[in-house]
Design a protein around this nucleic acid. Structure first.
Length: 664
DNA sequence: TCAAATGGC
């Protein structure tokens, strides 16, 4: 794929436009034909026709994501206004693949080929191939439980086993069953009720076809889950990667640096004259520094990129020839008994290890240096523990309840979460008012919370704020709480300047009022500048740069704000503002979050009231130094210590009436 | 007196 793209850049600019187009079309056609999957098109279509469920194992570079949907379209699976839906774990993937496929089909994006993600829907009534995030497809089921417009649904990258993928796999199993056995009864109803025609059209077609695509080592897990479904293997296209192991186990990161220098001295003699340009990449990195990672190394330099697991699946850095794999990954786990998340470095799985070394063979033959012995590799787990077994389940269970699945313990998960994790989530949802005493969805609160794309605690805060007079402020607050790292660490020479700026924003009350202030001030700046629609992003970036705010995070928060504002307006909420009456807003905050409070102890540490854990204020909080007597917080996570994040002090006067109720 | 994984609705 890369070589054709580069070839096009070298075209003579004087070539007539029409001819350049036809050359481009020819290149695309040649590229498509060269993909490993192209030779098995006929066979694949036959198998889809024969089997209602198909597992496709395709290695990197097989072309399965872009080609199979086109094969299905050409084979007539989109006749009669039906769609082929392709779910992806991330929106970047959904968008880039949809763009590529639209180009290959020579159609305008948003017509025959489109994508749909949380903030952007490019599909129209004539869309046949729809790429989307798996989380969004789940939400579609809330509106259309039979997913009636789809003739085929492809779940891509299923091996990643995100929570959304796992729930989707279970849901689709049920939808497929409902659509095959429910046909008859519903057709009778169709004659008597035109209003539900949308759902019924879906029932008159042949059963829903399901295709699960995975890059994992074996397809057994998926095949068994779908009652022995047929699995096919499609060849990949990768350059060879030499794997090198260490003779002795490596125990610290200093060894990583040594390895890099050894590579430079011994193994890369031809390149040894180049100096090393060290760069780091992680998700919170401000965009200008991100550009440096993607830019080619200056002459005389070799880039050494230190990456988090963002480089495993989310981002591909061009030009990689050597990968050093320390064999560990920072992984989040959730302890339901303490209501606390832990982040620590754990051994990778074999699947992750292969993913990492694979990056060395994208553009040519490469090498991968594994900082452990081969026998240690053999001992690794085949695949990473599915996320659903390591996370807070409250959101998942709320979604399932809203989809009509009441028996969570008996739910057909591909990997069942622990009983205690389910109990904890049910209890939390009950406490938040989303579930009734017998664990049914509370109407309307539970329904409303399920429809909001937020943590249930934040959805609850919006419902409370609607009963007060500060919904506008709470919308801003939960949008800001939903994104990571609004502030970032500036380079050394700017540190003093940044501190002044930070002090300007800091509220003595805590992080919530600080975030509200940041959002409001940036908004005032935008309004004062009166930018054209197209310039808003640029104006915002300028403001962020001057104020040491992470512009990507703030933009993300603005997008969430817009989205959830639309959601609550649809629910009939009236978005009113308390203006400068911060007391009302603070009361509402306390009412929303007082359940997660902590109290200062004699030694300056804090005791979390719910779990009894001894915790510390995270250094990024504006209250890190002032240490108020009592605080509430939104996050509790163990890293080097047990830290609480995003906190606001609780006024001692309020604790006298913590029975405070917004309905009073 | 100090943190910092990553996706998604």
């Amino acid at each position: 794929m890369t070589s054709t793209a580069q070839g096009e850049l070298k075209q003579n600019p004087k070539t007539p436009v029409a001819s350049r187009f036809s050359m481009r079309r020819q290149k695309i056609a040649e590229h498509r034909k060269s993909l490993p999957i192209a030779s098995v098109e006929k066979r694949l279509i036959e198998e889809v026709q024969k089997n209602d469920i198909l597992i496709i194992v395709g290695e990197t570079g097989s072309g399965k994501t872009t080609q199979l949907p086109q094969f299905l379209f050409n084979a007539g699976f989109c006749r009669g206004g039906k769609m082929v839906g392709i779910s992806q774990p991330s929106c970047i993937a959904a968008v880039t693949v949809a763009k590529r496929v639209a180009e290959e089909c020579d159609v305008q994006l948003g017509q025959r080929v489109g994508y749909s993600i949380m903030f952007d829907d490019t599909t129209c009534s004539s869309t046949s191939l729809k790429y989307m995030t798996d989380a969004l497809l789940l939400r579609e089921a809330l509106v259309d439980p039979l997913l009636s417009r789809y003739s085929v649904i492809i779940v891509d990258e299923a091996h990643e086993r995100t929570v959304h993928t796992d729930v989707l796999l279970a849901l689709l199993k049920k939808v497929q069953l409902d659509r095959s056995i429910g046909n008859k009864g519903l057709e009778v109803e169709a004659k008597t009720n035109d209003e539900i025609g949308g759902v019924l059209r879906g029932c008159q077609i042949s059963p829903l076809k399901l295709i699960i695509m995975s890059a994992s080592l074996d397809a057994r897990v998926f095949s068994e889950y779908y009652g022995g479904a047929k699995a096919l293997h499609v060849q990949g296209r990768q350059f060879t990667v030499d794997i090198l192991y260490t003779v002795h186990p490596v125990t610290d990161y200093a060894a990583l640096v040594i390895t890099i220098f050894q590579m430079r001295l011994n193994l890369l003699k031809d390149l040894s004259k180049r100096k090393i340009l060290p760069l780091a990449i992680f998700s919170a990195l401000p965009s200008d520094q991100l550009m440096r990672v993607f830019a080619p190394a200056p002459i005389g330099f070799r880039k050494v990129v230190l990456a988090t697991n963002i480089a495993e699946t989310s981002i591909t850095i061009p030009g990689i020839r050597y990968v050093v794999d320390p064999g560990r990954v920072k992984a989040r786990t959730y302890d339901p008994s303490k209501g606390m998340e832990t982040l620590d470095a754990v051994p990778t799985s074999k699947a992750q290890v292969l993913q990492r070394s694979g990056h060395a063979g994208r553009e040519g033959p490469g090498k991968c240096f594994r900082l452990y012995r081969q026998r240690e590799f053999e001992k690794l787990e085949d695949s990473t523990k599915p996320e659903i077994k390591r996370c807070n389940l409250s959101n998942v269970i709320l979604q399932l309840k809203a989809l009509g699945y009441d028996d969570i313990f008996g739910f057909d998960f591909i990997d069942k979460p622990s009983r205690s994790a389910i109990v904890k989530a049910l209890a939390e949802l009950h406490l938040l008012g989303a579930l009734t005493d017998d664990c049914k969805l509370e109407k309307p609160a539970g329904d409303q919370m399920a429809r909001l794309p937020l943590d249930p605690v934040y959805s609850r805060a919006l419902i409370l704020a609607n009963q007060s007079n500060c919904l506008e402020e709470m919308l801003i607050t939960v949008a800001m709480l939903s994104v990571e790292s609004i502030f970032y660490d500036p380079p050394r020479e700017k540190r003093e300047e940044a501190r002044t700026s930070r002090n300007h924003f800091a509220s003595v009350e805590g992080d919530h009022l600080t975030y509200l202030g940041v959002y409001r001030e940036s908004n005032e700046f935008l309004e004062a500048e009166n930018s054209e629609e197209a310039e808003v992003d640029q104006t915002l970036r300028k403001w962020c740069k001057d104020n040491f705010v992470n512009s990507r995070s703030l933009k993300h928060a603005r997008d969430i704000y817009r989205k959830i504002r639309g959601n609550v307006e649809q629910m009939g909420f009236n978005v009113s503002s308390c203006g400068n009456d911060m007391l009302e807003y603070r009361r509402c905050l306390a009412a929303s979050f007082f359940l997660i409070a902590a109290q200062r102890q004699m030694d300056g540490t804090y005791r979390a009231l719910e779990s009894g854990e001894i915790v510390h204020i995270h250094p990024t909080s504006v209250l890190f130094r002032s240490k108020p007597e009592c605080v509430f917080f939104n996050e509790l996570m163990q890293t080097s210590k047990k830290y609480i994040k995003n906190l606001t002090r609780i006024d001692p006067v309020w604790s006298a009436h913590h029975h405070y109720n917004t309905e009073e």
